[in-house]
């Protein structure tokens, strides 16, 4: 059993919390616990997962109210101490609202809620969240969001690109980057970014939904396995399609 401890934050309206818990606890055999958003500490977790869903009904803006939940103060100080934080979908929106990640997630350019599998090209495989993939590897992960259109001003975009902060980009099956592969209008097909320090990741696609063959694919397990590898160095996951 991995010694790495995951804390999965539960906001009112979170709905991917159990999927994330299942991925790290049952598939990867890590320690995991749910953290109710009203709690004032993160219970010694090494990694905080902000799961997908519709926290606070997406009122005002997605993630705008959740970022002021009591636990977010602890999540921010955890991140500032160098602790790892991953925000998926609504979790990404909360991270950008809280200022832990740059930019914002606008309404999808199509104005439609997009719910389908997309291909992602792993842009930077040296991060704590992607080290079990190869740079340029294409993985298939589902998206399900109405506000995933990553936007930032051009200076910040240049900083993100120049520093290798793009973790994943929407791509074709063969890895080419096209407008057609972009489900929401995100700048530069950006699907996931890390912060400058490399300890915070936000991504719109849902890796926790594809973590074992029983679910049709295990393309997403590498994100969580990468964290275990980065923190404890022991990746012992049987049958996971990751790099040797």
């Amino acid at each position: 059993m991995s010694k790495v401890k995951f804390g999965v934050v539960v906001f009112p309206g979170s709905n991917c919390d159990h999927d994330a818990y299942h991925a790290v606890k049952h598939v990867l055999g890590s320690q995991a616990e749910f953290l109710w958003h009203k709690e004032g500490d993160i219970g010694g977790a090494d990694v905080i997962i902000l799961p997908g869903g519709f926290s606070y009904g997406d009122y005002l803006r997605c993630g705008a109210i959740s970022r002021f939940s009591p636990i977010m103060k602890e999540v921010v100080s955890h991140a500032q101490r160098g602790g790892h934080v991953i925000g998926i979908c609504n979790g990404f929106q909360i991270l950008s609202e809280s200022g832990l990640l740059p930019g914002a997630l606008l309404r999808n350019q199509s104005l439609n809620f997009v719910c389908r599998h997309v291909h992602l090209r792993v842009e930077n495989a040296t991060t704590a969240f992607t080290n079990q993939y190869a740079s340029g590897q294409v993985i298939e992960i589902p998206v399900a969001h109405g506000e995933g259109n990553f936007y930032t001003d051009l200076d910040t975009l240049a900083e993100i690109e120049d520093n290798g902060l793009v973790a994943f980009r929407y791509a074709e099956r063969d890895g080419t980057i096209t407008d057609e592969a972009n489900p929401n209008g995100s700048l530069n097909n950006i699907a996931g970014i890390i912060n400058r320090e490399g300890n915070v990741l936000g991504m719109m696609p849902h890796p926790e939904r594809v973590v074992e063959q029983l679910l049709g694919s295990d393309d997403g397990i590498g994100v969580f396995a990468s964290l275990i590898n980065a923190i404890s160095g022991d990746v012992t996951i049987p049958g996971v399609a990751v790099l040797p």
């Binding site: 005002l60 803006r61 705008a64 109210i65 002021f68 950008s96 609202e97 930019g103 914002a104 606008l106 936007y151 930032t152 001003d153």
Partner: peptide, 8 residues
């Protein structure tokens, strides 16, 4: 702080 996100 809350009512608008000045990034967008």
């Amino acid at each position: 702080k809350l009512l608008a996100n000045t990034v967008m």
